[in-house]
Structure formats: C-alpha cells, structure tokens
Computed example of a mutant assay.
Amino acid sequence: MKILILCTGNSCRSQMAHGFLQSFDANLQVFSAGTHPAEQVNPHAVEVMAEAGIDISHHRPTDVATCLNETWDYVITVCDHARESCPAFSGEVRHRLHIGIEDPSEVTGSPETIRQAFIQARDLIKERFSRFYLTEILGKELPRCACER
C-alpha cells in the first residue's frame, strides 16, 4: 500500500501524519510532500511527535513535483490549500481523500499557546489517521463518533 500525504509546506501536519501512519504499520509505504515545501520540518512538530514516541527528526520537506508520475493507492490532503491546488498526477491515483487539520504553525502567542496548538494538531492527526488506517486499510467498521453526525 503506497500513501502520499500532501499539504502546502510539508513541514508539520503532513509530516506528523506520515510519522503516525508509518508507526501503525511498517509495511505501508508512506510519503509526504508539499505544494510549496518549507526548508525544514517544523521543530515544534518534531518535538511533540517525539513526546508521542515517534521520531520525525530525519524527515525532510519534499516537493510534490517529485511524486506526480508515480502510482498511489491514496493521496491524502491535510490542508485546504493543498486540496484546492492539488496538482494533476500523471501516475494512477486510486483514492483521493481530504483529512483537514488546522495549521498549528499559524498560531501566534506565548510559547505555551504555540506548544498547545501543536499538541492539539498532533492528537487530532493521530485520531483521524488511526480511523483512516482502521477503516480504509484494515477494512474495519467503526462506530461513528458524535462529531461526524
């Protein structure tokens, strides 16, 4: 199973989702990319993922252009901008999904406010990508949560 997680900067949300999916199943081929990749993975994302036991410090932002000719089982956008500007893939894309997450790197305020934004994004990504993994990859039916009704 080959999965691409796409966002704008590929520095935060897509990197965290990449880390979680890979931790759920080492047999998945998980990649992440950005429509306008940043210079590096956001240090706050690296920090909060390490606290969850997942090391993404070796990840590097990648331009989605390097992924366009490949075949993907899933291309998942995690931000509205990437969803709206998702490029045309010349390789086959079997499924396109959007799992939108607010960008914690846009939060301003005290260091604790920023840290909490990254923790909230991390926890939401874990929950939503766990659900994706269980339902889409493993094919399990889960009860719908109240927030989806």
Score class of each variant (00 low, 15 high):
Pro111Asn: 07
Ser105Cys: 09
Gly109Met: 00
Ala121Asp: 02
Glu102Lys: 13
Ser130Arg: 02
Ile119His: 09
Asp103Glu: 05
Glu112Val: 03
Glu136Cys: 14
Glu127Cys: 09
Ala121Arg: 00
Glu112Leu: 03
Gln116Met: 12
Phe132His: 14
Gly109Ser: 15
Ser105Thr: 08
Ile119Cys: 01
Glu127Asp: 13
Phe132Val: 11
Gly109Gln: 11
Ile125Arg: 00
Phe129Thr: 06
Ala117Ser: 10
Pro104Arg: 06
Gly139Thr: 00
Ile137Cys: 12
Gln120Tyr: 07
Ala121Leu: 02
Phe129Ser: 05
Thr113Arg: 06
Leu124Val: 05
Val107Phe: 06
Leu124Glu: 04
Thr108Asn: 12
Glu136Lys: 07
Glu136Ile: 08
Thr113Lys: 01
Glu112Gln: 10
Ser130Asn: 02
Ile114Leu: 00
Leu134Glu: 07
Phe129Gln: 10
Ala121His: 03
Glu127Trp: 08
Ala121Glu: 10
Thr108Ala: 10
Ile125Lys: 00
Glu136Pro: 10
Ser130Tyr: 08
Leu134Arg: 13
Thr135Asn: 01
Phe118Ala: 05
Lys126Gln: 15
Ile114Thr: 10
Ile119Tyr: 08
Tyr133Arg: 11
Thr108Arg: 15
Ser130Trp: 03
Phe132Gly: 08
Leu124Asn: 09
Gly139Pro: 02
Arg115Ile: 03
Phe118Gly: 01
Gln120His: 13
